[in-house]
Amino acid sequence: MAQEKQDFIAGDKNISDPVNWVDTYADYLYHFAVSKLRDEEIARDIVQDTFLAALQQLKVFRGESSEKTWLTAILRNKIADFYRKQASKGLREIAHSEREQQDFFDNENGHWNALHAPKAFGVETDNPLMMKELGAILDGCLKKLPPLWFSVFSMKHMDDSASEKICLELKITDANFWVIMHRTKLNLRACLQKYWN
C-alpha cells in the first residue's frame, strides 16, 4: 500500500510529499481559517483535520487543481461543517434570545431601554490603533455569541454567503435569519460598548 502511494505521488508533479504540506501550506490555511472563524484554537484544530482528511483523499486527487487549491477546498468544507454543527446546537436559542432581547427595548412601545441605549464610542475610525483595539474586543464578543447566531453571522459577514444558502445549510427560515442577524448585531454592539468604555 505504502509503495503504491509513493509511486502515485512520484508520478504526479502536482502532488508533493504530504510530509512537506505543513511547511508549505499550514500558515496559509491557518490564516484562512482564522479569517473565517476569528478563533485561533478552533482554526488550529480545523487545519489539522484538513491535512488528515487530505491524506484520506489523496488517491482521488488527480491534480486537476493545484495542491493549494485542493487543500483550501477541503478546509472550506471543514469550516462549513463547523458552522453547521454549531448551528444545530442552538435552534432552541431563538426562543431564549427572544426573551433576552426584551432587555434592549421597551416591550410596549419598542423604545430603547435607557440602560441599553447606544452611546457614542468616541472612536476615531481613521486611527488604526484604535480600530485594532476595537477589533480585538469584537473578537472576544463574537466568542460569546450563541453558536447558531455565530454561524449565521459568520457565514454572512466573513464567508460572504448568500442569505438563501445560509438558510438552507443551517435549516432556518428567512424570517429567522433576519431576526438572528438583528439580534446578533444588537448584541455585538452592546458588547463593544460595554468593554470599550
Partner: peptide, 14 residues
C-alpha cells in the same frame, strides 16, 4: 456603530 462593526469584521488583518 452597526456599520463600524461591519467595518471591523471586514477589515480583518493578521
Amino acid at each position: 456603530q452597526s456599520m463600524l462593526v461591519n467595518r471591523l469584521i471586514a477589515g480583518f488583518e493578521a
